[in-house]
Design a binder for these strands. Structure first.
Lengths: 247, 247
DNA sequence: GAAATGGTGCCAAATATTGTCACCATTTGT
DNA sequence: ACAAATGGTGACAATATTTGGCACCATTTC
C-alpha cells in the first residue's frame, strides 16, 4: 500500500472511530506498528493534530479542528505575499526563505494560470535594491494605495501613467511616462519610467507622486531598464540586480 | 528532489510559461528526460490535461482549466511566510504589507490552533531590527540549518541551548543559555540568551555558533529582553521594538 | 533527409520506505 | 509493587520504489 493511501486510511479511520490505537491501526492498514507511528509523525508534521494518551485506555485521537478548510487567498493577497518573500530574498541571506518559497510555490500552483502570468510580469519589473542607511527614514509619507493600483493597471495593460510630481526642490510638474519598473530601496519606493517627451528614463519617488492615472496607449513598449548609477537614486548603494527568480 | 515537489514544479512551470518541452523541463527540475515523461504521465493520471505536440515548434501545454487545487501549506511553510512578512513589516513602511497580513490571517485561520500558538510564541521572540549598513555584508557565513532547528526546539520546549562559540577575537567558549530572542539585523542574525552562569543577557552572532544542542531543563523562564544599546550589537541602529503583532 | 519533438520498454543503479527488534516512559488496573 | 497496555525512539538490514540511461519509434517541420 502506498504511503499517501495509508495516510488517508489512517486519517479516515481516526475520523470514523474517533479514537484508536497504534496497533489497531497497524492491523487495519496492513503495516507495522513502527510504520504507523512514522505515519502519524508525518501527519502531525502536515498539520493534523493527533492527541495521544499512553497507558491502559489510552490511544490516538484526531482533533476534528485540525481538518479546517484550506486557505483560499485572493489574488492581491497572494501578490502581496510574493512581494514580501521576494523582498526578503533580496534583503540578504535570510534563513527560511527556501521554505517560504516552497509555500509560495503551492499557492502559485493553486492560482489560475493567467493570474500567475500577471503576477510574474509585475514582479519582473520589481527591483529590490540593497537596504538603505537610516537617512530619510522619517521622510517617507504614507504610500498612496491609488498609485499602486494605477501602476499595476498601467503596467499589466501596457498603458502610460500620468501624474503630478513634486521634485526635491518642490517644483511641480505633470508627467506622462511608460512605467518600466519599480525600484524598492526600503523605505523608499521609486517608479522608473521612460519619459517620451524627454526621450530618457526618469525615476520618481512614489510618495511625491499625486493624482496618478493610467492612460491607454498603443505605443508602449517594454525597455531594458539600466540600473546604473545615473539612474539609481542612491548611487552609493549599488542596488543588487536580481537576475533570476528561482521560485 | 521529491516526487511531489517535482510534480509541483512542473505544473508551475507550465502554468508560468504556458508551454515548454520535455527537455527544458528536465533541465529546469534537475531530472532526466525519462523521469519528466513519467511525471507527466502521472500528472495526467491525476487529472491534469496536458496537451502535447510533436515535431519542431511542438511542446507541452497545460490546459489552464484542467485543475485548480487550493493551496494547502505545511506548518513550517506558513511559519516561513510569517517570518518573511514580519521582516518586511519591520524593514520599513512597505506597501502591500496590509494585504500580506490579510492573506496570512486567512492562512492562520486554516491552521490547527495549537500550531498557531507555537508560531506566535516563536514570533514573539523574533526582533527584527532596522536594516544594517553595508558593512559586514560578506562576513556572514552560511547559516547552519541545525542551529535554527535547535533554537526552535529549545524555544518552544522551553529548553536551554548549548553551543560552542567563537567571539570576535577568535576565543572559543562553550555556552549554555536560555534562548530568549532572535535579533535580526540583516544580514546578521543574533541569538539573545540569558546566561545563568553570568546572570546576564548575552548575544551571539549565529554564524559563530557551532554544535548547537537543546538541553532539557525545568528552570527555564521567559524574561523581558531589554533591547537597549548595551545589548544591541549595532547600538547606532536603534532596532525597532515590535510592540504588537497585528496579524 | 535532418532535427526537434513526444513517447515506450527495459534494466541496473540509486534512493526511499518498511519491518524487526530492543528499548524507554507513562498510565492504569490488580 | 507489579504487570499490562499504551505511545514513542533509534538503529539497521531487508524490501520496494524511483530514477537514469539507453535504444528505439512516430510525427512534424524545415
Amino acid at each position: 500500500m502506498n504511503v499517501r493511501l495509508r495516510h488517508d486510511a489512517i486519517v479516515r479511520s481516526l475520523r470514523r472511530n474517533g479514537t484508536s490505537t497504534v496497533d489497531a491501526l497497524a492491523e487495519e492498514v496492513g503495516a507495522s506498528r513502527r510504520t504507523v507511528l512514522r505515519d502519524i509523525g508525518a501527519l502531525r508534521d502536515e498539520g493534523y493534530v493527533i492527541h495521544s494518551e499512553v497507558g491502559r485506555g489510552g490511544g490516538l485521537q484526531l482533533d476534528p479542528q485540525s481538518m479546517q478548510p484550506r486557505a483560499k487567498l485572493s489574488v492581491p493577497e497572494v501578490f502581496a505575499l510574493l512581494i514580501s518573500v521576494a523582498a526578503m530574498r533580496a534583503a540578504g541571506n535570510l534563513p527560511f526563505s527556501e521554505l517560504a518559497d516552497a509555500g509560495l510555490a503551492k499557492i502559485e500552483k493553486a492560482l489560475p494560470s493567467d493570474k500567475v502570468k500577471d503576477l510574474r510580469a509585475f514582479l519582473e519589473c520589481l527591483h529590490i535594491g540593497q537596504l538603505s542607511p537610516l537617512q530619510d527614514l522619517s521622510d517617507m509619507g504614507k504610500m498612496d494605495p491609488d498609485l499602486l493600483v494605477a501602476f499595476e493597471t498601467a503596467f499589466l495593460g501596457r498603458h502610460f501613467i500620468r501624474f503630478d510630481y513634486s521634485d526635491a526642490k518642490g517644483r511641480k510638474t505633470e508627467r506622462q511616462v511608460e512605467p518600466q519598473a519599480m525600484l524598492i530601496l526600503p523605505p523608499l519606493w521609486y517608479l522608473v519610467g521612460w519619459d517620451p517627451a524627454r526621450d530618457d528614463f526618469r525615476h520618481f519617488r512614489m510618495d511625491r507622486i499625486s493624482n496618478p492615472e493610467a492612460v491607454p496607449t498603443t505605443s508602449f513598449r517594454r525597455r531594458h531598464v539600466p540600473f546604473e548609477d545615473d539612474v539609481c537614486p542612491y548611487s552609493e548603494l549599488r542596488p543588487e540586480r536580481r537576475s533570476s527568480h528561482s521560485w
